[in-house]
Structure formats: C-alpha cells, structure tokens
Design a protein around this nucleic acid. Structure first.
Length: 546
RNA sequence: GGGCUGGUAGCUCAGUUAGGCAGAGCGACGGACUCUUAAUCCGUCGGUCGGGGGUUCAAAUCCCUCCCAGCCCGCCA
C-alpha cells in the first residue's frame, strides 16, 4: 500500500510535501544513511524539467536531516543506455547550445545504438558523449547548489557492482520473464533480461539476442540483432559472440529495481511517465523476484515551459544555467518546493511573478504575516532548505524595479534611485545594500533576454541627435522645470504642456526625450524616471550639453 | 478502448488532509489638474471552483456521472 506512487494525493501528514514524504520514509525504520536517488539519461542538454530528479529529492533529504538522519543523495547517470536518435541541439560544457550541424553529426550518426559512454564526446572535452552530458547535469546541480553524488551506470556494470544481481536475474530468467509479462504484452519466450553489447559493432543488442547462458563461466552467447528505435531500425551486424555479465546491460524494467538493490535506495521521485509503467512492474520485480523492499515512491507532474511541453528535439528548453542568469539560485530552488503533484508552468516571460512569489515566501518566513497559518508553517519548514543559510532578512528590490535600475550602469545612481523609492532602509549596511543590488544584474539579463518593456539603456553620453527649433525650445523649457526640483508627476505633466505650448504633439516630445536619454523611440514612463535621476545631469541632457 | 493523474479569476497559482463567507500575485481598467507613454504608489473590476446530479443546515472540498488535458497500457528511458 505504501507502493502507491501518487504519494501526495489525498491526506498528507504535513503542510510541506517533503515533510510528509520524509515521515513515510522514517516510518520504515531504516538504518542510516538513508539513500535518495534520482536518475537522468545523459542523452542531451539537461533542461529544467530534468532537474526534478535532483531537486525534489533534495527537499526530502533536507526534511530527513531536520530529523537528524544521515542522508546520501545520489543520481544515476543512466549512461549505458544506447543513443537512439540524434538530438537537434547540443551544449558545450558552459551550457552554450549549438546545433547538430555545428558538430560532426556524421560521426555521431555512426554511433547510433552504442552506449553513451562508448561514443566519443562531440566536443572533444570529455571521455565520452555520456560523460559530457553527465557533467552538464552535475553542473546544473551545482548551480542549484544541491550536493549530489553522481553514479555512472556504466561504471556499475564495468566494476562488477551489477554482476551479482545480473547473475541472479539470469538464473531466474523464467520467473523474471513471467513477472514482466504481466506488464508488457510483447514479452515472448525468447525474452532474456540481459542485453549484451556486441563485441563487433558495439551496439546494445535486444532482449532476444541471447542464445545461451553459462552462469558458471559468467557468460552468455548472443547474435547481434536489429534494434527498434522509435520509427526507425538500428541495424545489427549479425555477429555471433560471447559476452560476460559486465558486457551488456539490463533492460530498463529490470535495471531500475537492480539499481535500488545495488545502491540500497530508500526513496526515489520519478516523472508521471513511470507511474503506470515501469514503477508497478519494478515493485513486482523488486519484491517478488529480488526479494527486496522497493523505495518509497513519489510521482511528480511535468513542467511546461511558457505553456508548452519541454522538447529537446524542438529546442523548446531552458537550462538551469540560463535561468540562474536572471534570478537568484534560491528563487529557482523555491520553484521546486511547490506541490509536485500538480503540473507547473515555468514562464521566462513572467519570471518576475516567480520572484515576487519568492519574496512573499521569504517575508512570510521572517515576518509571519500576511498569510494564513498553513502557508506560514510551510514557509517555516521550506525556507531554510531554499536558502544557503538563514541569516537576517535580506533586502529585496522588487524585481521589475530592479529591471528599471538596470537601465543605467551607474552603480551609485542605482543605489540612489532605490533609496529614493524607499527600497533601501536608511540604516542598511553597505554589505546588505550590495547584496540587494545584485538583483539588478539578474533583472537586466532578463530584460535583454526577453527584450521586454524594461529593455532600455540610459545613454551615458549625449547621443548624436538633431531636433527642430520648436523641439529644442520645448526641451529647454522642460529643463527649467526639472531645475525647479519638480517631482515625477509634475515633469510628466510638463511634457504634455510644454509640447502644446510649442506646437508639438506630446508624442513628439516624448520621442525626443527617449532619443536623448535612451537612444530609442520609446521607454519607461518618462516623468517619474527623470525625477529619479541626478538633477544636474537631466538638465544638461535636456539642454543637449552632455 | 482500459487504467491513472489533473481541471479554481484573462495569466500563474493558494485553498481539498479535517465540509463552514471564493482567495493572492500579476494583467486589465481607473487615479483631480489643458495629460496615449510601460517603474514605484493608491483604487476598481474580475468566478457556472470543467458540466450535470446526489448527500448535507452547509460542498471548490464527500459520493455518482459526463467532458477536457496529460501520462501509461508498443519500443526506449
């Protein structure tokens, strides 16, 4: 009954889902360390959705550590899986994406059917294709500041860690086949739960390639077969050979329970695609073939990106590396504290909303106001796991305001504007102000990336512009208004009035202002913005002097 | 076709554990004065809680049924 993968539907014991899961785990009376696992196939660029495998487990790990348990969080790089099709986009180790055409696609194509770890790295920087993309996954975890231990599946095979369980499954292959046949219609009499790697062409062969098993010698004989990959066939070479139990891989439906067995996994989150497929069969295999206890499960719903599913092949992806260019890592971690049983949209366009939510979440933790009791309790548990270390409450500039500050490179001006708007308390320490202003760079990146309403830059030097005499006179008059210590609304009104007084439409004068200050036709609401700037500078600029 | 998960304001989501006034943020709209200009501030509008039925003094919440979306029931992971 604890095998129900929808662990988070129905009554929960705690306000924060990770605590409810932690309780389920501790109810099992396990020895330390408790092992939490996730798994990702290093088939291409790891996107934000893939990070569920690591981030969800992290919050459970933290909840267990709160109970003074020792936790080991691992993720398996499922890198013995064969490359089945070429990804359309790849990424170098810095996360910069490149098209398939930018690497030697032909060389990659010739390696279809081989394990990721047996394929040369198209970038030439890592030991293999698998190592390259595993490194990218690790880097994503690093950027989320989540400590995980990477386990290479290939390494588990080659080191012999999988050998005993492989031998056991081959010894009991009829039972294994019978159990799996309850879940997969295509399991035939020739099914063997082992896929030897062809000694000649290097392909991972199919589950019907084994011809004989010699457990005493620890070998199988096989015939290299074709492999179905989606709508295509990767041709085998018909080579007849002998493979040891370390020279092949278990089919996924067995490999997963075998990982639990070998690594002693106590908890594993997984995507909804597993919930009705490999999870139930995995439980059955674990309990009834391997005589194990399967881990506590947790299904998570998938993310969408700007309303559409993540799609590596269509290039509709966003990586952790990209996201942490425009928000703080703790904000991204906060995203993963949300209820995993609900599908979630991650919107780059509306990233300001997520940051606002995080700020509210943080305020709830420190001030315990403005929210209901449940939310407060949730924040009190989840917040410490989201930030590096709980210290004093940080100063947070509203994200879109930070984007406005990003229109200027002048650090002093940024601070002055933030102070004037009351976002920095008078007694704030230099250190805390510096930290607060770091958000400006994030918001600036966001504005540039989405090219949105905040993507303007204050021109440090006078742009080369020419105006007619009416406009010049209007600008001079406006300069006088600003000189008289006018506030934002007054300047805004003055733009309209001055324009009319000089026979211009307000739009023409606005445009002239945007040209002078931003070198563009449009910009932020001009009056209040100019009011925030240094008076003398604004006056000089309006007079076209500097 | 069968099974599973989800559906709450224009958008993103809380609220469903234990039935008790329908919520937040964003967006939109409005903010005297000769005023189309995106930050900040103030305010307003915004709902068939997917539809229908039932239980109940009372239902977003419990039960039945239907609709829609996603996933699984082939391969692969």
């Amino acid at each position: 009954m604890t095998d129900d993968p929808y662990a988070l539907s129905g009554p929960q014991s705690h306000d924060f889902w990770a605590k409810s899961i932690a309780r389920r785990i501790t109810e099992r009376d396990l020895d330390d360390p408790i092992v939490i696992k996730g798994g990702i196939s290093p088939s291409g660029v790891p996107h934000l959705g893939n990070m569920n495998e690591i981030a969800r487990g992290y919050f459970v790990a933290e909840a267990l550590r709160d109970r003074n348990r020792t936790v080991r969080q691992v993720f398996t790089a499922d890198d013995r899986d064969p490359l089945r099709r070429l990804p359309r986009t790849l990424a170098d180790l810095d996360g910069n994406t490149v098209g398939l055409g930018d690497v030697d696609a032909g060389a990659l194509g010739r390696n279809l059917g081989k394990p990721y770890t047996a394929i040369p790295d198209p970038f030439g920087c890592c030991d293999s294709y698998g190592a390259h993309f595993s490194a990218l996954i690790e880097r994503s975890a690093d950027r989320l500041e989540i400590p995980v231990e990477t386990v290479s599946n290939t390494e588990l095979y080659e080191s012999g860690a999988f050998e005993d369980v492989t031998r056991y499954l081959l010894e009991h292959r009829e039972q294994a086949r019978d159990v799996l046949a309850n879940y997969q219609n295509t399991v035939g009499d020739d099914y063997v739960p082992f896929r030897p790697i062809c000694g000649d062409c290097g392909h991972v062969t199919e589950t019907n390639s084994v011809r004989s098993v010699d457990l005493d010698a620890g070998t199988v004989t096989y015939v290299c077969t074709d492999v179905e990959a989606g709508d295509r066939t990767i041709e085998g070479c018909s080579h007849e050979g002998v493979a040891t139990l370390r020279e092949g891989k278990l089919p996924w439906r067995f490999e997963w329970p075998a990982q639990w067995h070998v690594l002693g996994v106590d908890f594993e989150p997984f995507g909804k695609d597993h919930a009705e497929g490999s999870w139930p069969s995995g439980v059955d295999i674990s309990r009834n073939v391997l005589s194990d206890v399967p881990p506590v499960p947790m299904t998570y719903e998938w993310f969408t990106l700007d309303g559409r599913p993540f799609s590596s092949s269509d290039g509709h992806v966003v990586t952790v590396g990209e996201v942490v260019e425009f928000l703080e890592p703790e904000v991204l971690r906060y995203f993963f504290t949300k209820d995993p049983s609900r599908a979630r949209d991650f919107s780059v366009e509306r990233i300001d909303q997520l940051v606002n939510e995080f700020d509210e979440f943080e305020r709830t933790y420190f001030e315990e106001v403005g929210s209901d009791r449940r939310t407060t309790r949730e924040a009190s548990v989840a917040y410490p796991a989201v930030v590096d270390a709980v210290s004093e409450q940080p100063i947070r500039l509203p994200y879109t305001f930070a984007a406005v500050l990003g229109m200027t490179d002048d650090a002093d001006l940024r601070e002055a504007m933030a102070r004037r708007e009351g976002h920095i308390p008078a007694e704030a320490s230099e250190r805390s102000i510096e930290a607060a202003l770091e958000r400006v760079e994030y918001a600036r990146q966001w504005a540039e990336r989405t090219d949105n309403a905040y993507n303007y830059r204050l021109e440090a030097d006078l742009p080369s512009v020419a105006f007619d005499s009416d406009t010049e006179e209007a600008l001079d008059e406006l300069a006088s208004v600003v000189e008289r210590e006018a506030d934002g609304e007054t300047i805004q009104s003055a733009i309209f009035e001055t324009a009319r007084d000089h026979g211009l439409s307000p739009g023409e004068l606005f445009t002239a202002g945007y040209r002078l200050f931003f070198g563009t036709e449009q910009g932020p609401k001009l009056g209040p913005f100019l009011a925030e700037l240094d008076r003398a500078f604004v006056v000089r600029r309006l007079r076209r002097e500097a």
